[in-house]
Simulated scan of single mutants.
Amino acid sequence: MTTIHNKHINSLDKDNLEKMVFDLQNLLEIALSLSSNLEFDSLVESILYICIGQMIVDKAAIFLNSNLENDELTLYMSRGYTLEPDLKIVSKSKLINYLYSNCGIIDSDKARELMSADPTTKETYDMLKPEIVIPLKSKNSINGLIFLSQKIMENSYTEHDFQFLEKMAKFASIAVENSRLYRMATLDRMTGLFIHHYFQERLVEEIKRSERTGTPLTLIMADLDHFKDVNDTYGHQQGDIILKGTASIIHQNIRAFDIASRYGGEEFAIILTETDIEAAYTIAERLRKKIEAEVYENGNKELTVTISIGLAQFNHEIDKNGIDLIKRADTALYSAKATGRNRVIKSD
């Protein structure tokens, strides 16, 4: 009997050891994958899919501090849920206060206790009904929360699951913070578009990729019309509102992998990858019309602005580098200005 019992224990130990080794290898791969990814959206998506895949759930949501102006956590990405994009968790909520003084993952009972009775989080709780909440902590602050639903097979989260997710969360927290700092260094604070230097770096990369793969690449150069008059007449604060509004329209009307930047002042540059000039013209016309249609209020007045746009498709026979491509797109932009503004002109 003792011999059988010892064999059973040894067998269990071996199984546990093998699982432990497997999990450590898995965590190492996750850590390497997350730490090497500085693209914020791609990183966040990776974190969500790691949670979904490892825990076998069909619903996951992540809230992050993506606004530099405050400490609120806003819904950044979700899978499986149907959620309003403006969902947020304020820094003074019971949930956040509890997590600052208590480390680790919280279960469904604690999540219900903290969130359902708090007016600031009740609506969010009703939409999510989380089985567990995983805090992402960095430098004594909470920079994110991951909400996971019940497992697909409806079995409970185990102590082993909690341990795995806590280790994963440490790697994810560091990766999110590093990516966030990188994004802060590459984004224009006012518009949320990429800065000029980052645009130049990416243009070089995308031209090389276009040459290597043979896929088309088109550059948009755009400039708000008579913007100096707007600043002189209505003030720079109104000008800033229009710049932000224009940037928002650009964000909403290009693909996630296109690269939009504030080139300087009221001028914008957009790299359209895998896009020829005809397809780029359609995108540019859509942007032009939406920017023209946008109405800005200034006291009792309603203001509108227009934009002139120049396009150039990369041509390895005439474009020796990114500078040549920019010059051709700029020339087309100047033509749009010279021929009446508020139009799109294609480079030859």
Rank of each mutant, 00 (worst) to 15 (best):
130 P>Y: 04
65 N>E: 10
289 K>N: 12
343 R>W: 02
138 S>H: 14
28 L>T: 07
127 M>D: 08
100 Y>T: 01
230 V>R: 00
254 I>Y: 01
149 S>Y: 01
298 N>F: 10
130 P>T: 09
271 I>M: 11
305 V>Y: 00
272 L>M: 14
26 N>S: 09
171 F>L: 07
291 I>Q: 00
95 L>P: 03
324 D>T: 00
143 N>W: 12
30 I>K: 04
332 A>V: 02
123 E>T: 12
113 E>N: 06
120 T>F: 11
204 V>Q: 13
297 E>T: 09
69 E>H: 06
1 M>D: 09
323 I>S: 05
335 S>F: 05
28 L>E: 03
232 D>K: 13
316 H>D: 00
187 L>R: 15
328 R>W: 02
292 E>G: 00
127 M>I: 09
141 S>Y: 06
330 D>T: 02
290 K>P: 04
73 L>G: 00
272 L>K: 10
212 R>P: 03
200 Q>P: 00
70 N>E: 07
198 Y>T: 12
314 F>W: 11
99 L>N: 04
238 Q>K: 11
257 F>V: 14
136 L>G: 10
23 D>E: 12
177 E>N: 15
174 I>L: 15
287 L>M: 05
279 A>F: 07
74 T>L: 06
192 G>A: 05
123 E>G: 10
316 H>S: 14
173 S>F: 07
157 Y>V: 10
118 D>T: 01
340 G>I: 11
288 R>Q: 12
146 I>F: 04
152 I>T: 15
69 E>K: 11
99 L>F: 06
289 K>E: 15
47 I>P: 07
127 M>S: 13
192 G>S: 03
69 E>D: 12
182 Y>F: 15
245 G>T: 03
50 I>Q: 04
1 M>R: 10
346 K>Y: 05
206 E>L: 06
197 H>L: 05
75 L>A: 07
345 I>K: 03
164 F>H: 03
220 I>V: 14
259 I>T: 12
186 T>R: 11
178 N>Y: 12
139 K>E: 12
144 G>N: 11
185 A>C: 08
148 L>S: 13
310 G>L: 04
336 A>M: 01
154 E>P: 03
213 T>W: 04
115 M>D: 08
240 D>N: 08
333 L>R: 11
312 A>M: 03
243 L>E: 11
193 L>E: 10
75 L>T: 03
311 L>T: 04
343 R>C: 11
219 L>C: 03
305 V>W: 00
48 L>K: 03
74 T>P: 01
305 V>Q: 00
54 Q>C: 03
251 H>M: 09
192 G>K: 00
61 A>Q: 01
285 E>D: 15
328 R>M: 04
114 L>R: 02
98 Y>A: 01
334 Y>C: 13
154 E>W: 14
102 N>S: 06
92 K>I: 13
22 F>Y: 06
27 L>Y: 13
142 I>Y: 04
